[in-house]
Design a protein around this nucleic acid. Sequence first.
DNA 1: GTTCTTCAATACTGGACAGTATGGAACATC
DNA 2: GATGTTCCATACTGTCCAGTATTGAAGAAC
Lengths: 194, 194
Amino acid sequence: MPRKVTKPEPKVRLSAVDWELAALEALAESGLGAVAIEPLARRLGVTKGSFYWHFPTREALIQAAIERWEHNDEEQVVAPLAKVADPRERVRELIRLTSHRRPTHTIFAALFRAIDQPLIGPLLERASQRRIDFVTHAFREAGFDAKTAANRARLAYSAYVGFVQLAHIGQPRMTHDEFERYIDDFIDTLIPSR
Amino acid sequence: MPRKVTKPEPKVRLSAVDWELAALEALAESGLGAVAIEPLARRLGVTKGSFYWHFPTREALIQAAIERWEHNDEEQVVAPLAKVADPRERVRELIRLTSHRRPTHTIFAALFRAIDQPLIGPLLERASQRRIDFVTHAFREAGFDAKTAANRARLAYSAYVGFVQLAHIGQPRMTHDEFERYIDDFIDTLIPSR
DNA sequence: GTTCTTCAATACTGGACAGTATGGAACATC
DNA sequence: GATGTTCCATACTGTCCAGTATTGAAGAAC
C-alpha cells in the first residue's frame, strides 16, 4: 500500500536544505511553476509557516536551489571531464555523459522552459557560455581554427539543448540501440575522424 | 507621444479572430502564461464580458490560436519549400528560412517553453514529426541511407530547436556576418559537399 | 420604430497562491 | 525546572485570474 500519492513525509524537522531539495525535485518534475510554497509545504507534510522561517521569500528559495544545482552540475559534469587529455575523447565523453538522462538534465530542461523568469535567464546565460567555451576549447585543441571551433561548439550545444527539450515529450521515440547509433552519428558528424 | 504603453485599442467591435491574433501576439511576447483573458481584454480595450461571448473557455482560445499558427506555418514554411527540386538546396533553403527570426519562430520558441501544457505537447509532437520527416526525406533523396538520413535530420532539427531557445536570451551574441558564417558551417557540417 | 441578434460592461463567486502576524510546542541550556 | 531558541501551525490579507449571470447598447431585419 503506497503511503499516499504525494508522500506527506512525516519528517521530524526541516532545514533550509530540505526545502531546496524539494524545490529541485518539483522543478524537475513539473517546472518552475510547481516551485510554489504551499504545494511544497503539502509535499513536505508541513505548512507555509515552516517555509517563511527558513526563507524570506519564494525568490530566495529559487535562488538557493539553482545555486545548489549549478554547483553540483559543475562538480559532476565539467570537473571530471577536465581530466580527459585527448580533446576528441573529451568531447565524446561529454556527449555521452549529457546524452543519457540524469536528474540534472531533467532540471536543465525545466530551467530552459523557464528562461523568461528573472533569475533563470541569467543563470542559463552563464551556464551556456561555460559549456560552449568548454567545447570550443576542446575543438581548438583538436586542431580546428578559432571560427570553426566556435561554430561547431555552438552547433553541438544547440543540438544538446534541443535534444533535451525533445526528449521531454519523448519525441525521438528510439530504442536504446537506435539512440546509441544516433549518438555515434552525432559524434562522427561533428568530429570527423579525419 | 506614445498612445499608451499597452495600446488599449479603441476598436469598435471584436471578432473571435481578433482574440486569436491577440493571443498569438501575447504568446510570442511573454509566453503562454500571458495568454490570459483579463490581460488580453485590457490589451484589446474591452472587458472579459466580450471574451466569453466568443469563446467558452480559455482553453478554447488557445486551441483556436495554435490551430491558426499551425496552419499558417504549414503554408508559409513547408509548402514553399516543397517546390525546390534539389534536395540539398531544399534543406539549405529550409535552414535559411528558419534561421532568421520571424514572428512564427518566436511563437515556436514560446510553444516549446510551454511544452508541459496539455494542448501544446501534442501540437509540438505533431509539428516536430512533420519537420523531421521533411528533412529526413530530403536527406534520403540526397543519397543518404535511411538510418543516416533519419539521424542527421534529428540532429538538424534538434540544433534548430536549441538555437531558437538560445536566441531568446541572445546567447549566441553574433554579428550578422558571424551568423551567416555560422549557418554556412552548419550546412557544410550536415551536408558535406561530397 | 419595434424586435432580434450581436457584442460588451458590471458585478459577482471561487480557487490558488504570496506574504504577514502571532501564538504554541519541542528542545537545549543553565 | 525556568528560560530562550528553533521550528511550525493557524489565521489572517491581498492579488490575480477563470468562469457565471445579468443587464445594456448598437446595428440589422421586419
